[in-house]
C-alpha cells in the first residue's frame, strides 16, 4: 500500500457559534490560492471564480460557505471527462487539463458551489480544493490554520465528528443537536454544527441521506440490459415482418403461376 492510500480521511469542522465574522479564513484562502486583492466585502460577497470561501450572515449567524467536499460527490459523478476527482484524503480536486467546459458540475452541485471564469476565453471551473497541496505536505487547510476562534478546525474526519459530539455534549443548551454532513447525501468532508437547525443556515436539508449520484446510476446501470433487450426485440420484429413479406411474395408468385 502506498502512503497515500493509508492516509486518514480528513475533514473540516465549522462551528457557527464560535465564528466572529473576522474574515481571516477568507483572507488566508485568497493568500493560499494566489488571489490576494484589497480586502473585499466577504460578509456580502458570493462565492466566485476568485473567491472560494465567504462568510455570510444567515439568520443572525456567521456561516462560512465553501465546497463541502462530499463523500460521494455529485460533481465527480456528472463530469463526462472525469475532470473532477474525489481523493482518498477527502478533497474533491479539479484537473483543468481534462475539462471541456460543459458546466454540468455547476448545474448538478446541490450546494451550488463551483464557479466559472465567465470573462475568460479559456474558462475553467473554480472552487475550493480543501488545500490539497497543503494537505499533501501534512499541513492543515489555510482557513483552519488562521481561524482565531476555532470556528474552523481541521483534522481526521472521525476525530472531527468526535470533537463536534464533545462540544454538543458539553453545552447542550448552546447547540442544536445535529452534525450536518455526517450523513447528508452520503456525508461530506465539511461538517457544520450550530445553535440553530441547518436549514436556517442556508444548508439544503431535504435531499435525504442517499448520495445524489444514485439517482442517475439507477437509470444508467440499466443501459446494458436495455440495449440487449431492445436489440433482440427490434431484430425480432424485423425478422417477423420480413418473413411475413417473403411468404406473401412467394404465395403471390404461386398464385400467378
Amino acid at each position: 500500500m502506498s502512503p497515500k492510500q493509508i492516509q486518514r480521511k480528513k475533514a473540516i469542522l465549522l462551528d457557527t457559534t464560535r465564528c466572529v465574522g473576522c474574515g481571516a479564513c477568507y483572507q488566508a484562502c485568497q493568500e493560499q490560492n494566489g488571489q490576494l486583492r484589497p480586502s473585499g466585502d466577504f460578509l456580502n460577497e458570493d462565492l466566485g471564480a476568485r473567491t472560494f470561501t465567504v462568510v455570510n450572515n444567515r439568520s443572525g449567524r456567521y456561516v462560512r460557505r465553501m465546497c463541502m467536499h462530499c463523500e460521494v460527490p455529485t460533481c465527480v459523478s456528472v463530469c463526462p471527462v472525469a475532470a473532477l476527482e474525489k481523493t482518498a484524503a477527502g478533497p474533491v480536486v479539479y484537473h483543468d487539463r481534462k475539462c471541456i467546459g460543459c458546466r454540468y458540475c455547476m448545474q448538478a452541485c446541490p450546494f451550488n458551489v463551483p464557479r466559472y471564469e465567465w470573462t475568460s476565453t479559456t474558462p475553467y471551473v473554480r472552487k475550493c480544493n480543501m488545500c490539497a497541496a497543503r494537505q499533501a505536505k501534512g499541513q492543515a487547510t489555510a482557513c483552519a490554520t488562521v481561524c482565531p476562534t476555532g470556528a474552523t478546525s481541521f483534522g481526521d474526519r472521525e476525530e472531527m465528528i468526535q470533537e463536534a459530539r464533545r462540544r454538543i455534549l458539553a453545552a447542550p443548551d448552546h447547540y442544536f443537536d445535529h452534525i450536518y454532513g455526517v450523513q447528508e447525501i452520503g456525508g461530506t468532508s465539511v461538517l457544520v454544527i450550530s445553535d440553530v437547525p441547518p436549514e436556517q443556515l442556508g444548508l439544503p436539508t431535504r435531499l435525504g441521506n442517499e448520495p445524489l449520484p444514485e439517482l442517475t446510476w439507477n437509470v444508467l446501470e440499466k443501459i446494458p440490459t436495455a440495449v440487449a433487450c431492445g436489440g433482440v426485440l427490434l431484430s425480432g420484429i424485423w425478422w417477423i415482418t420480413n418473413r411475413r413479406e417473403e411468404v406473401a411474395r412467394a404465395e403471390g408468385k404461386k398464385k400467378r403461376s
Partner: peptide, 8 residues
C-alpha cells in the same frame, strides 16, 4: 477520458 457514471 471516461466516466461511465456520467449521463453526459
Amino acid at each position: 477520458m471516461w466516466n461511465p457514471h456520467s449521463v453526459m
